[in-house]
Design a protein around this nucleic acid. Structure first.
Lengths: 341, 341
DNA sequence: GTGAAAGCGCTAACAT
DNA sequence: ATGTTAGCGCTTTCAC
């Protein structure tokens, strides 16, 4: 413990120290209403020397305004989400609003708990990853009466509105690009699906577009846990042993794709001549790899920014009309591992 | 917006719907005091069908208890911090406490602002990265009267208590290990220092231990911004052009070290025979690299866990005595890039 | 086992 | 430009 006095300072303390009414002290501290320069200075002086920190709990209760935006994401260990957060923060920093992060570990029940906790603080808005939620979660969000933006995914029906990309379409487009380069014997590696709806949708779009050309994925493998880089490498090795004839490897994220890249390089395989590869996300982290991985930008920061803008505008004016779904369009980055010369 | 009714539900609504007094409803919802099974069920039923979510703002004001722990870190984009957070969350999940994250971007003034915001919510404790803070921040923390754990670093004087490693010592030990392997012409690459005290201390410890053996770093370079992997690669290339005689490269983090590794591999340099390298952190991310990088574990999750335990125990009982400084001891992981055969 | 009254620290609304 | 009053939605305390 650091202090002797167990009682935190209140407005009253500042009021007494400055000889100004509580109300006026409150006005000064919030920059609201007209206060004379002289009083303002007295108050600020007193607050500063006392070390007064306002009690937002009381303020929020009295004003029934809480300048918090709940941001609910599956994980912080996947760089995608911190990048979305950056976008959110960048926009909210221009406003009174503050993001508060909750992590669900991809578990629907945990999402429900986290959401309940967050809503009990009566935030001004919610930004939540994905369109899949428990019934209870959807009910809470609907009942909350605050703006809700579901992010990252647009393949589904939003509760309120959504900003993201279509992962099904992303999968389809990657499939088309791969076929166009003449690859035909394709393997897929990704995260275990039930947990990750967006990865699942990409895979579905991918296989669907292949099927349209009469092609099926030759081999597939799903992992969970562990270092993505190492897993990507292991899975690739195993898959090549099972299916030496593969000519393309599609990965559900860039990290495992990078692992695969290392394995192919170690085996001295010609990339992208003999085997091509592609990942997903466009994480800048990978800029310095020996080869530039083919990937697809998931528009992470942009999604965060747009979502925050929607919340901010609706907090200012709940009546503003908003598009139900804002679909951003990711582009394929061919890098050095997809385009055959 | 999702709902029609702009007024969120209150205890009174549940009270009326269930025909039980507000007080008893409150007791049921908090599992406090004796309530008959029959009443309890009535209340739970009513709360559920209404979709009542308690208002923690009001609850916190009335009880002057807030089960929030402020966790203040420089960034979420450096994997180190999400890993610390995992440790914190893991421990706090066993308690009533909840972590709330604030990000400072390594800026002391932003730290001050974030801290002020967080303290205004009257959290039960603070976990904050580093021992360097503005005077105002230190004053706020002292005046808060709540437990404060400064983490990641033990080279300095904590406000209340600290859990971390000595980065000076880490730097010294790496220097000794490098010298012991016979390396003598050493280069250093790292982040721009003023922003990152822990990297600075490692560098200081490093040069100090070299100096003791009459050795100086031959070349050094500092970067900021951009992809760490790419930067590591660029800096390494540039440094080798300036100083072809280098026989060891020490990096302030694993990400730039990995970039350096790629550059050395691309140049066909014998590692660790001709040139050795080492990074810092032990990020599991790097498990799948072509060579296992020498590094030093920063005990991230353990630091998070320990810090959370201290907060939790002090919230339960403010009187429990605590060590001022808990210093964990990182070990060198030699990998394949430091130990000459 | 249940209820009534008071008040947490602030701000909205209305004085002056 | 400043002060007064009431009350935000809960929990504490005390009564029954």
């Amino acid at each position: 413990m650091a202090a002797d006095d167990p009682r935190p300072l209140t407005l009253r303390d500042v009021s007494e120290a400055s000889g100004v009414s509580e109300m006026t002290v409150s006005r000064v501290l919030r920059n609201r209403g007209d206060v004379s320069q002289a009083t303002r200075e007295k108050v600020l002086e007193a607050a500063k020397t006392l070390g007064y920190v306002p009690n937002k709990i009381a303020g929020a209760l009295a004003s029934s305004r809480v300048n918090l935006v709940a941001v609910i994401i599956p994980s912080l260990r996947n760089m995608v989400f911190p990048e979305v957060l950056s976008g959110v923060s960048a926009v909210l920093e221009e406003t009174e609003l503050q993001p508060v992060v909750g992590v669900t570990d991809y578990l629907p029940e945990k999402e429900e708990r986290v959401l309940y906790e967050m809503l009990s603080w009566r935030p001004s808005g919610v930004i939540i990853a994905g369109l899949e939620h428990t019934d209870a979660s959807r009910a809470m969000l609907k009942a909350s009466g605050i703006p809700v933006v579901e992010i990252m995914d647009t393949d589904g029906t939003p509760i309120d509105c959504a900003v993201g990309i279509s992962h099904r379409r992303a999968g389809r487009e990657m499939a088309r690009a791969i076929l166009k380069q003449g690859y035909r014997r394709i393997g897929f590696m990704g995260t275990k699906m039930p947990l990750d709806h967006r990865a699942r949708k990409r895979f579905e779009g991918f296989t669907e577009a292949l099927a349209k050309e009469g092609i099926e994925v030759i081999d597939q493998e799903f992992y969970s846990g562990g270092s993505a880089l190492a897993k990507g490498r292991e899975m690739t090795k195993a898959m090549l042993e099972r299916e030496p004839e593969l000519d393309f490897l599609y990965y559900s994220n860039d990290m495992i794709a990078a692992g695969g890249l290392f394995e192919l390089l170690a085996q001295g395989i010609d990339i992208p001549g003999q085997i091509g590869l592609a990942g997903f996300n466009g994480v800048e982290l990978l800029d310095g790899l020996p080869r530039r991985l083919a990937t697809m930008d998931a528009c992470r920061a942009e999604i965060g920014r747009k979502a925050a803008e929607i919340i901010a505008s609706r907090v200012d004016n709940p009546a503003v009309p908003v598009e139900k779904i804002v679909e951003l369009t990711p582009k394929i980055d061919y890098g050095d591992t997809l385009k055959r010369r």
